[in-house]
Amino acid sequence: MTTATVHAPLPVSEKPYLPERMAAEWRRLRAAGLLLDTERMARFVADGFLRFESIVPDELNRAVLAGIADGTVTGGGGYHGDPLWSTFAEDHPIGKVFRLPAVRGIIASLVGPEPQYDHHAVHVVQARTGYAQMWHADAAIDAKPHFDIQIMYYPHAVTRPMGGTLILPGSQFRMIHEAEAARYQNFRGQVHTVCPAGTLQIVHHNIWHCAQPNSTDTTRYMFKLRLNPTVRQQRLWNAGDLASAKIHGILNTAQPWHGSDSRLEYINRIKLWRLLIGDPTWDDSLWLGRIENDPQTLISE
């Protein structure tokens, strides 16, 4: 991914979600090399999350932390469905983070160039906090075939003792309501977020996760932003490498905790991949093909 300069996103005074303008902005991001490639998208479909380390520069990270301290960056808000680019001004620290060209390319690849702002929250885990949050998926049970994204932004480095977000890769197809997953404590393959400052994790709306205890003397902060798509999520990434991308090994690799459900996980991935590439017949290893095979040719008398 390059850091080429592209036009600024939608001025806040303009009417949002005009298809022609969104298409033009998407083409600009693609031309600038800022969109995700096919293997990254397949990884999102398989794991339900992507991590981009140190994608936000340190100067901006410090501005965000200062904004949290002085209230410029509010602790939460939203829940009205406003246009993202009307929500955080260009000179606001958070507005600058999400207007970074590389970040706009990631957002556009997943939910389009002018997504809807759902809500945000600054998650704070105070120093010397022993409480471990229960495993949960955010909001309510949500079985839509496409997806929202949540962006987890870590403005400072997170060490294991600081208890970064614990994520369960490949949990996005598991339909649970909120903290109904609280009966589980540990999974084989769970991933602790340990990352440098300026890291973004982009997660599918259904991903299971939980905050972890902070055994250090340093308060931990994470800025979370939920975005809803405003366009059909079909080939929004740079799909020019679709024919050559090595996605079989990505979509056909189970998580350690999937157990005997691994093939059902593959089928759910295939269904989402079909939606994303706009091909309802696409298949991998005949996981759906043999089930859907229903010959109609009659040869008997």
Partner: peptide, 26 residues
Amino acid sequence: GSGICAWSRYDAAGSDTGKSGDQDAP
């Protein structure tokens, strides 16, 4: 006899009740 995917511990006799993310291996 098959392998473990996930696990939880509750201890009414002592202090070995687990919590999310506290063990990396079953």
